[in-house]
């Protein structure tokens, strides 16, 4: 009996440590992947696009469950459909309206499908995600995405900065602007789609953008902004991950709240410093 209790405690401890290991590994990987992408999203003002893409990926999750298609392929299908509809609509109504309409249609379709198949589809799972559901396969995939993001940034950093400064100047200096934009959107879509079951469709954009917003307040150059974004992303993911585990709350909202806390704290400090500077002069 006593031995059983000890073995049970040891197994339970190993289970807790394994879960913690998964949470920390996934948190670090997501931070490293999304922080630089988030900076680019903020620089290029692609927040709205990222949001739309994330919601479209919820549709991918539901198509995957219904058809048995792997989530990644369902995601490619869904984001392809998303991009195609926007491409067709934007000349008529502008980018923002096209993204808004397409996003609403895809969310509505997802909700209708979820309602029609109540036993098969757990819509909450796709909305808020579940970090504990991350498998060894998912961790491998995250490593792969991280390598793709690193290669993308290291190979095209200067071109990216020039393109963001001015498309005209970049094009005149031989930068393939359209190709670079397409490559960025492909990498962003790939990263969002591959992490949707972990972080959820509802909050993925905030997870991408908050670290970049925090970094923008303190950074003096594009490189330092990426560095600060990685740091704040690791902090918010780590704190959020630990809180999620110990308080048994969903992962994504937990890291968003941690990130939001860091952002507003920094905002307060910045305003306080400005106030002190004004009063001393």
């Amino acid at each position: 009996m006593f031995i059983h209790m000890i073995i049970g405690t040891i197994i339970n401890g190993i289970h807790i440590w394994l879960s913690m290991f998964v949470i920390i590994t996934v948190s670090v990987l997501i931070g490293l992947i999304f922080a630089p992408l988030g900076c680019l999203v903020l620089w290029k003002r692609y927040v709205y696009f990222g949001d739309g893409l994330a919601h479209a990926s919820m549709f991918a999750g539901i198509v995957s469950v219904m058809s048995g298609l792997p989530i990644f392929y369902a995601g490619l299908l869904s984001s392809g459909l998303f991009a195609f509809i926007i491409f067709k609509l934007r000349s008529n109504s502008g980018n923002s309206a096209a993204i808004g309409l397409t996003t609403s249609i895809m969310i509505s379709l997802s909700l209708v499908l979820a309602y029609s198949y109540p036993g098969q589809i757990n819509i909450t799972k796709y909305l808020v995600g579940d970090i504990i559901s991350a498998s060894a396969q998912d961790i491998k995939l995250l490593f792969f995405i991280l390598i793709v993001v690193l290669i993308f940034f290291l190979s095209s950093y200067k071109d990216l900065v020039l393109m963001i400064l001015s498309k005209d100047i970049a094009e005149s200096r031989g930068v393939k602007v359209k190709f670079l934009e397409l490559a960025f959107l492909a990498v962003l879509s790939f990263a969002v789609l591959s992490t949707i079951k972990i972080v959820g469709a509802l909050l993925v954009t905030s997870i991408i953008v908050i670290p970049a917003m925090v970094a923008r307040m303190v950074a003096k150059s594009p490189v330092s902004m990426i560095g600060f974004a990685i740091l704040s992303s690791l902090m918010m993911n780590f704190i959020g991950g630990i809180l999620s585990f110990y308080l048994d709350i969903p992962f994504a909202p937990s890291i968003i709240l941690s990130g939001g806390f860091i952002y507003f704290l920094l905002l307060l400090i910045t305003h306080f410093k400005k106030f002190l500077f004004k009063t001393s002069h």
Binding site: R45, K158, D168, I169, S172, P222, M225
Partner: peptide, 23 residues
């Protein structure tokens, strides 16, 4: 070399004049 009419600089990116010249 080309200097465009419209300077569509995106100010979400932190960049000082020295870094701009380096680019």
């Amino acid at each position: 070399g080309y200097a465009p009419q419209k300077l569509d600089f995106n100010f979400n990116m932190p960049l000082n004049a020295e870094a701009l010249m380096n680019i």
